[in-house]
Design a protein around this nucleic acid. Structure first.
Length: 869
RNA sequence: GCCCGAGUGGUGGAAUGGUAGACACGACAGAUUCAAAAUCUGUUGCCGAGAGGCGUGUCGGUUCGAGUCCGACCUCGGGUACCA
């Protein structure tokens, strides 16, 4: 009896699947299709345990659906453009292209041994000219439909490196390399008109029945539909009125000042004319562009000296301030502040000594606002003070509507629906991305490139020794004749946001080598993605952009009608987290280390984590308290920060290759599916892999030691039927951990059963089948050992015998006052009255009643009995 | 700051508003062994000798009955438009 040897068994079955082209996706009109897709990975160079978890889940679905008779599409590719490749080129030399393709090769080599049921003939990388050339064709078609335009937008500008920084590269408002204070600077950028679809993208969320509610809620909040009032404040100096947008027009009587964004046209006028204003606005431009930086930073204001008239009382003048927390992108870039009912406005007014005026109170507590703004829910009734539209007691919602009606009738403002969603800025001043296929001509202006000239390929002869975009300083790449007039002209040097690459790859997989972005017949057959699987971190941007792209592609004839929502069902799996190990460089900035590069020792009750090299600093068997000091001096002492999402930049990643080498792919697969519910984050620890391995060994022995026979066993048949039902249910509801638990139970039941070999044989064959989506190699081996026909991968999914699932007696717990005090066995057909009678005859009930009548007797059929005394 | 989640034994976790802790890890005890590994069997939420009591982040509420529903809070995680 040989031991199960994954090292020889796994490659054997992988070769068998390859030879039989088991996972080749074919457009078979006679069969129903099933498209399962996991979010494709960024080729960082190594797969991590999170990838294994993600792709194993998709593989379980793909293999299960295939067993159920579907024609399955399960592709894989690489989200290959992006900053890390350029960073690597800067840090270690070399070229982003070589770095990326060698990473892809390495990761493919690490993934293949997992035995995933992927159709590798469809593989592509977004940095393949064949792919990004088609993306450029899409861009041109979008452009022709008016879905692309240019406007100014702010970027993070590093004044020392003279380059644009990504938000991630701005640390505490400073450039990551130069350490210089970052400035907000305006650049002309390319945009997709996603805002044309704001209402549509919001409304269509309702139809996404198989998406998690939390994702739909996040997207709805992100789109941020609001109804408010827009009107102008007349200036006392006769200048242009200041248009404001407010979602709380009902608080107009509590207005304290009018605030404008530092990027507001009026602010720019003042900047040119008034040195004090210019100094303040320069101050506002310091720091990064993120909403988080703006919201959490200190709120600063500047009194322009300009006054406006209150629209309801021409004698009431309000000052105009420039305030750094007002966004030019939202509404009109100007607001009025009502400090009594907005905490941020209140803090600002207290700081600059501006008035605070209450406009409404709690129904039974008319307490003036001091340091805490009164901000009840908009659905809560409040008591108004002198409301101009004649309100007394009303909710905020009613008040807003009444106010808009009042103002519209009076004619000095109008109700406006706004969306928070902004157009998608896709320009990046970087090399390693898809070139934007347009040409700048002195005579013709901005001209789209001709489709026959696509792909516009990136030049290979570039260097990364100095900061900035290598395309800008390339000697010849920019030079090209104008596609319109033929005169010498210059190429656009901006490349596309990598979110563009990932916004249509799912469509490209349906026909990955077509000479147009998609092939309609293939797209018609394979779209939509039936099950999309990926991280919750993509809940907003990637998924929203993809929804927009699908609409734009339907609009431009690249996808069929009905593909507007490209993902029928979405599952967001949790992240695999790990502690972060950190030391500091000479400038005190953090340096991160891989888990495999640190060592841990326990000194008394203290856990010390150090770099691997630290072992040399220590003496053999060192228990000295001076260790910490010595390690600190050598900068080998590691600071441990709590678990976070595994990310290459923080280096808190675990290499699954070790587990695969040691135990095999099936163990790794079984391990990542066990225990943790797929949607929840899981803290990675090394223990557990061994347990998975032991279990698989047990299942193998169970099969290998079986004799022959034609006996049957009713208990085993019952257990089999139950296992089929539960495991199937687990797979269909993404409860893989529950399927795994059920399989443990089933395997234990078989191994403990006293039934004959024939009965056990039947049970083990089903066990192998039920395990096959999770541990495909072991299952094939058992299947072939037990004389199963063909590949288990091609065997139809087992069906439970319903008759065996019916129970004739039920155990019902008896509660007394909600606490469990006993149980009774009743027939499944027992009437409520019979159950009541049996319950009242139970010892514990008689004892508790002491001869009295129960106050209440609750019988939930088949469930529980509660006696209330 | 704002939006969205999560919190249950020593650990990962299970539980259509209906027996809290399924299943597994670990630990402990035993069998086997010259011994160990492997394997197998059993015990294992906490307090208590026991009867019993207490237990799902904290506080409050709804209910015959709350891990589950509602309100407030605490902690951790994700997103926050140039990380992917």
């Amino acid at each position: 009896m040989s031991r199960y040897n994954a090292r020889t068994v796994e490659p054997k079955w992988q070769k068998a699947w390859d030879d039989a082209q088991t996972f080749l996706a074919t457009r078979d009109e006679s069969r129903e299709k099933y498209y399962v897709l996991e979010m494709f990975p960024y080729p960082s160079g190594r797969i991590h345990i999170g990838h294994v978890r993600n792709y194993t889940m998709g593989d379980v679905i793909a293999r299960y659906k295939s067993s159920c008779g579907f024609s399955v599409l399960h592709p894989m590719g690489w989200d290959a453009f992006g900053m890390p490749a350029e960073n690597a080129a800067m840090a270690i030399g070399g070229h982003p292209k070589e770095w990326t393709y060698s990473n892809i090769a390495a990761m493919r080599d690490q993934m293949k041994p997992l035995g995933l049921s992927i159709d590798w003939t469809r593989e592509f990388a977004t940095c393949d000219p064949e792919y990004y050339g088609q993306q450029q064709a899409l861009f041109l078609d979008f452009m022709q439909k008016g879905l692309v335009y240019r406007k100014n937008a702010t970027v993070n500008w590093d004044p020392v490196d003279m380059t644009v920084l990504a938000n991630e590269q701005v640390i505490d408002g400073k450039g990551w390399r130069s350490d210089a204070l970052v400035e907000r600077r305006e650049l002309t950028q390319w945009f997709f008109k996603i805002s044309d679809w704001s209402e549509e993208l919001l409304a269509a969320l309702d139809g996404l029945d198989n998406w998690p509610d939390k994702v739909k809620l996040m997207q709805a909040n992100w789109i941020g539909k609001s109804r408010g009032l827009q009107f102008g404040f007349e200036r006392t100096d006769g200048g242009d009125a200041i248009e404001v947008y407010t979602t709380r027009p009902d608080t107009l009587m509590g207005a304290s000042f009018v605030g404008i964004s530092p990027d507001h046209p009026l602010a720019k006028e003042l900047e040119a004319a008034n040195p004090e204003a210019a100094a303040f606005i320069a101050e506002c431009r310091k720091g990064g562009t993120t909403a988080e930086a703006l919201e959490t930073g200190e709120k600063l204001g500047f009194d322009t000296g300009i006054k406006v008239k209150h629209p309801l009382n021409p004698d009431w003048e309000l000052p105009v301030w420039v305030a750094n927390f007002i966004l030019m992108d939202y509404g009109t870039g100007a607001i009025f502040a009502c400090p009594a009912h907005d905490q941020r406005d209140l803090d600002f007014c207290r700081k600059y000594d501006l008035p605070v005026i209450d406009t409404f109170f709690d129904l039974d507590d008319a307490k003036p606002v001091e340091t805490e703004a009164f901000v009840p829910l908009k659905t809560e009734k409040v008591k108004w003070v002198n409301h101009f539209a004649g309100l007394d007691v009303a909710t905020g919602e009613e008040a807003v509507n009444a106010t808009i009606d009042f103002v519209e009738t009076a004619g000095w403002g109008k109700g406006v629906t706004q969306y928070r969603l902004r157009d998608w800025g896709l320009s990046r001043q970087r090399y390693w991305g898809c070139p934007i296929p347009v040409v700048h001509c002195d005579d013709c202006g901005v001209v789209p490139e001709k489709k026959e000239n696509l792909p516009i390929e990136l030049p290979d002869d570039v260097t990364f020794d100095i900061p900035g975009n290598p395309l800008d300083r390339h000697p010849t790449w920019r030079d090209t004749p104008c596609p319109s007039c033929g005169k010498a002209a210059k190429r656009e040097t901006d490349t596309m946001d990598t979110f563009v690459d990932s916004s249509w790859y799912f469509a490209r997989f349906t026909s990955p080598h077509a000479s147009t972005p998609t092939n309609m017949a293939d797209a018609e057959y394979w779209m939509n993605v039936d099950q999309y699987i990926g991280g919750i971190e993509h809940a907003i941007l990637h998924l929203l952009y993809s929804r927009f792209f699908a609409r734009a592609m339907v609009n431009t004839g690249h996808l069929p009608q009905g593909a507007e929502e490209p993902f029928d069902a979405l599952f967001t799996q949790g992240m695999v987290t790990h502690e972060i190990y950190e030391t500091a460089d000479n400038n005190g900035r953090p340096v991160y280390h891989l888990p495999e590069d640190v060592r841990e020792l326990v000194l008394g009750n203290k856990r010390i984590v150090m770099l691997k090299e630290g072992e040399q600093v220590l003496m053999h068997g060192d228990k000295d308290v001076g260790i910490i000091e010595r390690l600190r001096k050598e900068n080998l002492l590691v600071k441990v920060t709590p678990s976070a999402k595994m990310s290459k930049s923080k280096k808190n990643v675990v290499d699954p290759v070790d587990i695969i080498d040691q135990y095999g792919a099936d163990t790794a697969r079984w391990f990542v599916l066990s225990d943790s519910p797929p949607e929840r984050d899981v803290e990675w620890t090394a223990s557990g892999a061994e347990a998975a391995w032991k279990f698989l060994g047990r299942v193998w022995r169970l099969a290998a030691e079986l004799g022959d026979g034609d006996d049957t066993d009713l208990d085993l048949e019952r257990a089999t039927a139950q296992a089929i039902r539960e495991v199937t249910l687990g797979i269909e509801t993404f409860g893989f951990n529950k399927s795994v638990a059920k399989l443990y139970e089933f395997a234990n039941a078989v191994s403990k059963s006293k039934a004959g070999a024939g009965a056990k044989r039947k049970a083990v064959k089903v066990l192998a089948q039920l395990m096959s989506p999770m541990t495909p190699h072991l299952s094939e081996e058992i299947w072939s050992h037990l004389g199963g026909e063909g590949l288990i991968a091609n065997a139809p999914w087992p069906v439970a015998d319903e008759a065996l699932l019916v129970q004739d007696t039920i155990t019902m717990p008896i509660q007394i006052n909600g606490k469990r005090r006993g149980e009774i066995d009743v027939s499944a057909e027992a009437s409520k009255e019979e159950v009541e009678k049996l319950a009242l005859a139970h010892d514990a009930v008689i004892k508790a009643l002491e001869g009295r009548e129960p106050k209440k007797l609750i019988v939930v059929p088949g469930r529980i009995i509660n006696v209330v005394i």
